Simulated scan of single mutants.
Amino acid sequence: MVERADSDPTAKVTAAAPRRAWRRSGWWAPGEDAKREARGLSAWTRGRAVAALAVLTAGLLAFHRAVPNSLGRLGSLLEGFLPWLGLVVVVLLGLALLRRSATALVALLLPVAAWTYLFGGLLLPGAKPGAHDLVVVQHNAGDENTDPAGTARALADADPDLIALEELVPQALPVYEKTLAPDYPYHTVQGTVGLWSKHPLTDSRPLDIKPQAITEPWSRGLRTVAHTQHGEIAVYVAHLPSVRLRASGLASSWRDESAALLGKAIAAEKLKTVILLGDLNGTVDDRGLTPLTSRMNVADRGFAFSFPAAFPLARIDQVMARSATVGHIRPLPATGSDHLPVAARITLEGSVRIP
């Protein structure tokens, strides 16, 4: 007598095991999708929470100005780290793929489009150098920098036309002057900010951007005129007050007040072409710097995160210009400061005095 192979109990157990493992792995046997759809778990109904988060992220990107600043300056806090919402989009994409949710994937098109519109251009390569370009370097040198000579040499290695420095302390200033003198014979220092130039400087003076509540001596702004082969350029160097993150929110009222004073001074500037270099303690998306960003062009290429130097999260060291274009901006190698230097190329449109 011959027994049929399918009558063997072991064979039945062996055949059933892969099917159970198949279901446990999350990949369903034929007909399983139909059962899940019958329970309302189709690709279009799964992942609704992920889709909602995607829409929220898109809203924050597109309408960040609508986030109120009245409560702890939440709007400025969001805008300070706005580019990093791109990482949220990446995480949501992973969740959407894990959930195999068509709804979430479609919803993610919204934050992707918003982020690309706001920041995609910064990823493009910079234009080729032109005949009317200036190279500038901005750096908060740090009042605890133990190697000012090395810092000065590192900045000079970028071969800029202008070098702006903040947090110049008395003991380090002679070192900067001596180290930069061979290549930068012209310089002006007002308080704790300074400018070194390959071009002659005239009409240098301190700039009053001190918040009203500060009563002690405080000089962190200057204005001068650089005489270049392209004409006269008004150059401003500024170090706006620091902001602090507290339990009550972002403390930036002094920074905002100082930015308003600086913006007013630039608006009154008689020279057409203006370059602003400084540690502004805010990103160009931060509404606290609107008195400046509404009047001046900002870099159109490059993120150049500059602070903190150990793990840069934001660019608070800025290069802006009026009647000129700020091209690609890039970070330079770390120095002894807690900021990274940034270098930018500026294309001039011409510089004439406004009557």
Score class of each variant (00 low, 15 high):
315 R>Y: 02
97 L>C: 06
142 G>L: 05
294 S>K: 10
143 D>F: 00
171 Q>Y: 11
99 R>Y: 09
199 H>I: 01
118 L>E: 01
306 S>I: 11
31 G>H: 07
247 A>L: 10
15 A>Y: 09
246 R>K: 15
130 G>I: 13
212 Q>A: 15
86 G>P: 04
239 H>R: 07
220 R>T: 07
183 D>R: 15
268 A>G: 09
145 N>E: 00
204 S>M: 12
221 G>V: 05
67 V>C: 11
41 L>W: 05
350 G>E: 01
14 T>S: 15
304 A>F: 10
153 R>H: 04
341 P>H: 02
77 L>D: 05
45 T>Y: 11
328 H>K: 14
37 E>C: 09
198 K>S: 03
213 A>F: 01
2 V>R: 15
235 V>A: 01
149 A>V: 07
82 L>P: 00
3 E>L: 13
18 P>S: 10
338 D>C: 00
24 R>F: 13
157 D>R: 05
29 A>G: 09
125 P>R: 10
85 L>C: 07
144 E>V: 12
102 A>P: 02
189 V>C: 11
254 W>Q: 15
102 A>D: 07
349 E>C: 03
242 S>F: 04
255 R>F: 07
125 P>D: 15
73 R>Q: 14
234 A>N: 04
136 V>W: 03
201 L>R: 05
89 V>W: 06
214 I>E: 06
14 T>F: 13
65 R>S: 14
171 Q>R: 09
193 V>C: 04
135 V>K: 12
214 I>Y: 09
210 K>M: 10
286 D>S: 13
70 S>M: 08
153 R>M: 02
245 L>G: 12
101 S>H: 06
313 L>K: 14
103 T>I: 12
163 I>P: 04
67 V>H: 10
165 L>D: 03
290 T>N: 06
37 E>A: 10
102 A>W: 07
266 I>P: 11
83 P>S: 08
